[in-house]
Design a protein around this nucleic acid. Structure first.
Lengths: 205, 205
DNA sequence: TCAAAAATAGGACGAGCATCCTAATATGTC
DNA sequence: GACATATTAGGATGCTCGTCCTATTTTTGA
C-alpha cells in the first residue's frame, strides 16, 4: 500500500469507504482524513466527487476482470469456475455480513440517488453476468445460459442482502451449499425439471 | 389521503420519499415541501429525523402485519399464501424496477450508516420470515421451515436488486415463475433431492 | 542550476442540512 | 367569551458539505 501514487491511494481509500459507509455518506474530508492529506491536495487530483466515483468504478472493473481472467486461465472445468464465483460469498463473508455486497449496494444507492453513474456501476454486474453466461454455455446450456447467469447473480445478491441485514454468516454457508448442489444438478440432468421455465434442450456443446 | 392527520401525512410522505430517494438523501425540507408544510410545523410533530424513521418503520410494520393477517384470514392453502408473497414482486414490479425492495434497500442503507434503527427495520424482514416459516410448517416442512423461509426471502431480495439495477421488469416475471415452480416441487416431493441441504423428512403435519 | 510543472496545504465560499426558537393562529373547554 | 392548549409559520443557528482559490513546497527536466 506504501508504493502507491497519491491518486491511487485516494481511489483505494475511496473504494473502501464507499463500500463501508456508502457513496453519499462518504465526504471528501473522510477520504482525505483517512490518508492524512489536505482537501486542497485532494482537489488537485479530483475536481468533483463524481470523478472519484468513476475512478473507483474503473478500479473495481479492472480488479474484477483480472479475477475472472485468472479463473479462466487456470484451466478448470466451467462448473468449477462457477463454483469459484459462488464461493466468493463464503470467502468475503465477514465483509458481506458487515457491509453487504459491494456491487449490489452501490447499484442500489446510485439508483436511489438517480445518479448518472448507475450505468457504469452496472457494467460491474454485467461483467459477472457475461462471464457466468459464458460458463453456462460451456456447460452445454446455451439456450438458457443468460437466464442461469442471472439466477446465480440474483442468488448472490439476495444472500448478501440478508446476511448483511441479519448479521448472519452461517446463513451464507448454508445457502452457498444449496446453490452448489443446484449447480451440480444443473449439469447432471440438463433436460430435467430443474430451472423450470427454461426451454427443453439436451446438452449441445 | 385527505382525511389524514398532519402527523400521518408526514409519515406517509416520509415513507414514500425514504423509499424513493433513500433515508439520508431525504431532508426535512423535502418532506415538508412535498406536503406544503413549514419546517417549524414539522418540528412540532417530530423532534428529530430518527423519530420520523421510527414512525415510518412502525407504519410499515403495521401495514405488513395487516397484509399477512389478511392472507391468513382468506382461508387459502399455505402454498397459495406463499405464492401471494412471491407475487408481490410482480404486483410491485414497476416500483421495484425504479427503487428496489423497500425493506431490503432500507436495511442496506441503515447498515452502511451504522444506524441504530437497523434492528427495527429488521423486524420487518423478521415479520416476513416468521410468517413464511409458519406457512412452510403447515406444508409439512417443520424441520427446515426456517431455512425455506430464508430462501424465499433471499430470492425476493436478489430479484429486486437485479431488477432495480438492470431496470428489467421481465426478469422479475421470469424468476417469479421459476420460484413458483420450485414451490410446487417443494410440496410434491418433500423428501426428494430438492432444497438440497435440507434434512430428510417425510411430510409430517 | 534554475525555471517550469506538479504536488501539497489550508483557508474561503455559498448552499443545504438538522435542529431550535419565538411568534402568530386555531381549537377546544369551562 | 375567555383562557389554556395544540397547531402552524418562518426565521436563526451552527455545522458539514462540495467546490474553488491562492499560496507554498517539492519534483522534474533541460
Amino acid at each position: 500500500m506504501s508504493n502507491l501514487t497519491t491518486r491511487e491511494l485516494i481511489v483505494e481509500t475511496a473504494d473502501q469507504l464507499f463500500y463501508q459507509q456508502g457513496f453519499e455518506h462518504t465526504s471528501f474530508s473522510h477520504i482525505a482524513g483517512a490518508i492524512s492529506i489536505s482537501r486542497g491536495n485532494f482537489y488537485h487530483h479530483f475536481k468533483t466527487k463524481d470523478e472519484i466515483l468513476d475512478a473507483v468504478i474503473r478500479l473495481r472493473l479492472a480488479k474484477t476482470q483480472k479475477m475472472l481472467d485468472q479463473w479462466e486461465a487456470e484451466g478448470k472445468h466451467p462448473r468449477e469456475r462457477i463454483q469459484s464465483f459462488i464461493q466468493i460469498l463464503v470467502m468475503n463473508k465477514k465483509d458481506i455480513k458487515r457491509y453487504g455486497c459491494p456491487v449490489g449496494t452501490l447499484c442500489s444507492e446510485l439508483a436511489k440517488l438517480n445518479h448518472g453513474s448507475l450505468v457504469d456501476a452496472n457494467a460491474l454486474l454485467t461483467l459477472f453476468r457475461t462471464w457466468l453466461r459464458k460458463q453456462f454455455v460451456l456447460l452445454g446450456r446455451e439456450a438458457d445460459a443468460d437466464q442461469l447467469a442471472m439466477h446465480v447473480l440474483a442468488f448472490s445478491q439476495g444472500v448478501a442482502t440478508l446476511a448483511n441485514a441479519f448479521k448472519d454468516e452461517k446463513f451464507i454457508k448454508n445457502e452457498v451449499n444449496q446453490m452448489l448442489d443446484w449447480l451440480k444438478r444443473c449439469e447432471e440432468n440438463m433436460s430435467s425439471s430443474e430451472s423450470a421455465s427454461a426451454p427443453e434442450l439436451t446438452g449441445e456443446r
